[in-house]
Design a binder for these strands. Structure first.
Lengths: 108, 108
DNA sequence: ATAATAAATAGATATATGTCAATATATAGA
DNA sequence: TCTATATATTGACATATATCTATTTATTAT
């Protein structure tokens, strides 16, 4: 069970933005369409769309069209992957990469 | 108990980098000096110093000089703050900001 | 078909970030 | 005090990111 720091970083980067972390917070109570989400923020529609695309690309939110509206919602499975990743990262022990040295001499 | 998305984002940004998340992982087993940490990575000494400074600035790692060496280690309290922040962000319920609208009409 | 609404894409721009080489600072030992 | 070692700082540069306006695409209703 190797830790994928690249993948983990992508997940973290996706939520490491004030607007995006607030988006997922708002969505944690249930699905919302873009125009509903937008009421909570002071950003343009394209900017919001951009943030939603970033969150969706890493799988932390889902998107489903219902008529004219695109509904976004939290993907709890991916959230679990994220928290699990963090747990592993901060867990000391025999599985830590400080015990492993790769061929090039490094370990990460 | 308000959620500080700006502060949370700073914490997340600090670890949302492949090198830095690996640094904290390595440090999770115990304190190490810079030259020991460097063995695990393929980056220059100034670059590593820069990453360590970022992690230290948000309080996720500590620094203590011992003679010529600067030892860095995990700050478990700050890690708890981070995981607690994430728990709150993803927790649905009455405390969610989707129920709150500020004066300017937004909520985040 | 046409118009209206919802959302995404394209293109531009300013700022932030990660990296390195060169240099400076700090500490210990001779 | 001089030298060697450990780490930090500076300055430069390329890439990534967040944001906007303008436009396009998708869907529904008239």
């Amino acid at each position: 069970m190797n830790i994928d720091f690249e993948k983990g970083s992508l997940l973290l980067k996706a939520i490491a933005d004030p607007t995006r972390i607030c988006i997922v917070h708002i969505l944690s109570c249930g699905e919302l369409c873009v125009c509903e989400i937008q009421k909570y923020f002071n950003v343009s529609q394209p900017t919001l769309s951009h943030h939603l695309a970033i969150l969706k690309n890493v799988g932390i939110i889902t998107a489903s069209r219902k008529g004219k509206w695109m509904y976004y919602g939290i993907n709890r499975e991916q959230v679990k992957l994220l928290t699990g990743f963090l747990d592993t990262v901060f867990l000391p022990g025999d599985a830590c990469l400080c015990k492993v040295i790769k061929e090039d001499g490094t370990s990460c």
